[in-house]
Design a protein around this nucleic acid. Structure first.
Lengths: 204, 204
DNA sequence: GTCTATAACTCGATAGAC
DNA sequence: GTCTATCGAGTTATAGAC
């Protein structure tokens, strides 16, 4: 039998609470008191489970990065055409962002404050499927299936189009006075338009 | 005669230092001591010029946002075709990002933490040229110059493609082991490819 | 494991001399 | 205007009882 019951251990409650607070306020803005409150315990217990705020943060940060490349590897390894794969990647990323829209800002703003060697360690735990992607594009070009493009430029385009709109949501919503519902509808629509746009740019 | 000499007043030194520290560490992460050190003065003087950290931050934040829509209005008002205008907007944004690559992360992460009413005030000081853009797209569609597209979706695509690669730079550079020089070259190349991509998506 | 109480420290802000 | 010295609030972290 598989674990179905929710994990109600204190450690789990703390991690849930810490995620919420850190994502919202960032490392510097988060308070151990806030996290303790959100977890329904007291500060001392936080230190009992995770020696320091620093360590608790690293836990959350590393785990968050693990969620960056969700099902990408399996998509890339699948038996599909380049176009199908690219569409799936876009849809997968946008879906992921719909569920955790605060993730990209958190990761990008905290990553720029972490020392390099720390980040390097993380990539070893959570290898991004970069080489498979580059390989897919390069062979597709050789086989004449798509126009010659710089694989990294293409990747940047995909990531930009999928992720940025979620990062800019608070600001764009304000500026454009688009309400939450409308904005969400736009994001849903992008699951179709973004792959179209990307594929159009490489189709011969 | 115009002011050519550098403004060496204390106030100016403080603002320079505060910009640097706030951009780097964010509001919560920045320390008044850091800012004082960077400005070559002491904490007390910071409070003499700007009553509180809060006020100093607002100064920087509002000014930073003011730099977001620099030449966009004049581009939109100019006598050019839609395609030329879109190309100019992309080039203008990417150029801006090359000069101040830390700006988007700073603005977006702080914006998501600021209360709404505070942001609303800012848009009154620094009106983003949103309506001119939407108007341009809508009339171009009516005149049959471009395909029918949702103006906001188009704007999102432009902003995403121009801005995101700079936000993700620290992370992408690490993951891909692309060095600084190569990355900068890629960004330069995007001044051509991004407008092409965007224009291709609306050209009939 | 979990709590209360408190130590140890950081940081924004002010007082007051020059 | 600029400085040194210091206060006081808020925070991380620990001691010690249960």
């Amino acid at each position: 039998m598989v674990k179905i019951k929710k994990d109600n251990s204190t450690e789990h409650k703390i991690l849930e609470a810490a995620r919420q607070i850190f994502f919202d306020k960032g490392m510097a803005g988060a308070r151990m008191q806030d996290i303790a409150d959100a977890a329904g315990i007291n500060k001392a217990l936080l230190h009992y489970y995770f020696r320091s705020k620093e360590r608790l943060f690293e836990n959350i940060f590393i785990d968050a990065i693990g969620n960056l490349f969700p099902k990408l590897s399996s998509i890339l390894e699948s038996e599909k055409t380049v176009f199908e794969k690219i569409e799936l990647i876009c849809v997968e990323y946008i879906t992921q962002m719909q569920q955790t829209p605060y993730l990209p800002i958190f990761i990008l703003s905290e990553a720029s404050r972490q020392p390099e060697h720390f980040l390097k360690q993380i990539w070893n735990k959570h290898k991004p499927p970069l080489k498979p992607f580059v390989y897919m594009i390069e062979t597709s070009i050789k086989q004449g299936k798509i126009k010659p493009v710089h694989p990294m430029q293409l990747l940047m385009n995909i990531l930009s189009l999928c992720i940025f709109p979620f990062m800019a949501k608070p600001l764009l919503q304000q500026v454009t006075s688009i309400n939450k519902k409308e904005y969400d509808a736009m994001m849903k629509e992008r699951k179709k338009t973004v792959p179209q746009l990307v594929i159009q740019s490489i189709k011969k």
